[in-house]
Every structure is written in C-alpha cells, then in structure tokens.
Amino acid sequence: MVETGDDGPDRADRIAAGADAAKSAWQATLEEAEALAERRRDEGREAVVVGAGDAGLATTDDGDVRLEFVVPGDDAETAERLVADHSLDRFDVYRRTVDGDVFIVVEYFEPDGPALLVAGAYELRNAGNAFGAAADDPGFYTRLQTLDRTPVAEFAHADRSKFVPEDVLPVEE
C-alpha cells in the first residue's frame, strides 16, 4: 500500500475495496436469485432468473419514475415469453444497499404459477436524482429492455417503497 500520511488509505485502495464489496454483493444477489428460483422449482413452478447487465432509475417524460433493467438477448426472449404467456401481476422485492449501490432481486409471479426473477443493481444517487426530477406524485414502473432500449416488459407498481430505501423517497404530506 502507498503511504499517504495520517489520512488513511490512498484513493486507489478505497476504490479497490469498494469494487471488491460491489463484486461480492453482486455475486450474493445472483446466488439469492438462483436460490429463490430453486425454491419455486421445488414447489413445481417454473422459475426463470435474469441477471440485468445494467440497471438504473430514470424519470420519464410524463414525470414518473422507472427502474430500467437492461437484459441480454437470450434472457430477454425468455422473459418476454413468460410475460406474454402468464399474468405475472404480483411482485416481491429483495434488496440491500452496499457502498452507495442498491442490489435488488424483483420477483414477478403468478400465484401457484411461474416466477420471473430479475437481479440488478443501481446507484443510490440515481434514485435521489430521479425522484428529485419527478412529478409531485409520480407513478413507479419497472421495465426490462434490451441494450438497444427495445422494451421487453413493463410493470406498474403502486408501492415503490420496496424498491428504494426510505430515506431517498420524497416525504408524503
């Protein structure tokens, strides 16, 4: 390690430590998604896991907030088929925050039917930016899309609190 005086580790070491924490958190997120899928399969249900190559919160032109997951081509086709063939109208969210990143698994499912589990991560600062730019009472959506922004599936959510840490959400009056 480079000596930097009494100020502690140098910037490169802090960045490396953060990268290691992010890699570990991402690996744990994927493992948890696979474990959830395996439980659904043990119940006799179809379960598909999609690992998003990128994710982020954005404000739409209408002033709503959307969590966008970029999914690879093969996974996009599988997810699109599952959404087209089933009403995945229920959802649950599993998340943790590590060093400014939110690691998340969203499970879209049909009771006693198939489940689509999407694993992703987004930067917490993007949540503040998105909600800061949103309308006074924004809707909240999740969207799966390919790298070229082709929509795969979109879901509306009445309760956004499961997706975003509470201290980021606007205070409701």
Rank of each mutant, 00 (worst) to 15 (best):
M1Q: 11
V2I: 14
E3G: 12
E3F: 14
P9I: 13
P9W: 08
P9C: 09
R11I: 10
A12L: 09
D13C: 03
D13T: 06
D13Y: 03
I15S: 02
A16V: 05
A17G: 08
A21S: 15
A21F: 05
A21Q: 14
A22F: 06
A22E: 13
A22D: 15
A22K: 02
A22M: 09
K23S: 15
S24G: 10
S24Y: 08
W26T: 07
W26C: 05
Q27F: 11
Q27V: 12
L30G: 08
E32R: 12
E38H: 02
E43Q: 15
G44Q: 08
G44N: 05
E46R: 00
E46I: 00
A47F: 01
V48D: 02
V48F: 04
V49F: 03
G53C: 06
G53E: 15
A55S: 15
G56T: 04
L57S: 04
A58T: 06
T59A: 11
T59D: 07
T60Q: 09
T60F: 08
D61N: 04
D62S: 13
G63Q: 09
D64K: 03
D64W: 04
V65H: 05
E68D: 14
E68M: 06
V70D: 14
P72S: 12
G73L: 10
G73A: 15
G73W: 05
G73C: 02
A76K: 00
E77P: 00
E77S: 09
T78L: 12
A79T: 00
L82A: 02
D85L: 05
L88Q: 02
L88S: 01
D89S: 12
R90E: 15
V93E: 06
R96F: 08
T97E: 15
T97N: 10
D101L: 11
D101I: 03
I104V: 13
E107D: 12
F109L: 07
P111H: 11
P111N: 14
P111L: 13
D112C: 01
D112W: 03
G113N: 05
P114K: 01
A115K: 00
A115V: 01
L116T: 00
A119N: 01
A119D: 03
G120S: 04
G120A: 08
G120Q: 04
Y122W: 15
L124Q: 11
L124N: 05
N126F: 07
N126R: 11
A127K: 06
N129F: 07
F131M: 13
A133N: 11
A133W: 04
D136A: 14
D137F: 11
P138K: 09
P138E: 12
Y141R: 10
T142H: 02
T142D: 08
R143F: 04
L147T: 09
D148A: 09
D148I: 03
T150H: 06
T150D: 14
T150G: 04
P151W: 08
P151D: 12
P151L: 09
P151G: 08
V152H: 01
A153V: 01
A153K: 00
E154C: 03
A156L: 13
A156M: 10
D159H: 12
D159R: 15
R160T: 13
R160H: 13
S161K: 12
K162W: 12
K162R: 15
P165L: 14
V168K: 12
P170K: 13
V171L: 15
E172W: 10
E172G: 11
E173P: 03
E173M: 09
